[in-house]
């Protein structure tokens, strides 16, 4: 599978803030790979997508695939989008997932496949992929139900 080139990424995420520091992440999403920047010098994981390692001030930073395992750090149930005239038929579960790779490394995503009343802080979750309006997005689902 060939890597989508820059114009393909810009076209696919036409409504997103794609920039030089995060394009590798978006390119990865198009191939169902979740990439987070990692420092080549000290191994520190860096998120959000920034070009500098805050631990050792190295600019040698490269996107690397994460295992997709983590815990539900916090979440909210979105009932209404920014446009008040567009209530959501099904509430969206937006969550910060603390990835197993590093304490405090929290990827912002969605939780699917779990009724809201069964959500618990710190419950184990794993990466899955969902389709939405023709685009593929990462989401997390409870590990024991996956």
């Amino acid at each position: 599978m060939t890597e989508p080139d820059d114009p393909a990424v810009f076209a696919y995420f036409h409504d997103g803030h794609v920039d030089r520091d995060n394009i590798a992440h978006y390119r990865g999403l198009m191939r169902s790979r979740l990439l987070v920047n990692r420092c080549n010098e000290c191994g520190h994981w860096i998120y959000p997508h920034r070009p500098l390692c805050p631990e050792c001030l190295s600019f040698s930073v490269e996107p690397a695939e994460v295992s997709g395992l983590g815990r539900l750090y916090m979440w909210t149930l979105i009932h209404q989008s920014r446009d008040p005239d567009k209530p959501l038929a099904t509430p969206l579960l937006a969550a910060a997932i603390e990835l197993v790779e590093q304490p405090g490394l929290r990827y912002l995503s969605r939780v699917v496949g779990c009724p809201p009343e069964r959500l618990r802080h710190d419950m184990p979750v794993q990466l899955t992929w969902i389709e939405e309006e023709g685009r593929r997005w990462p989401a997390f689902t409870p590990l024991d139900m996956g």
Binding site: R20, D21, R50, P51
Partner: peptide, 24 residues
């Protein structure tokens, strides 16, 4: 230079911090 505004700013910031001989 093929870099983001933030990346450029960080490079200058790190250089200035090192020039001053302080830690971030």
């Amino acid at each position: 230079l093929g870099r983001s505004e933030l990346a450029l700013g960080l490079e200058a910031a790190v250089a200035a911090i090192r020039d001053a001989g302080i830690s971030p």
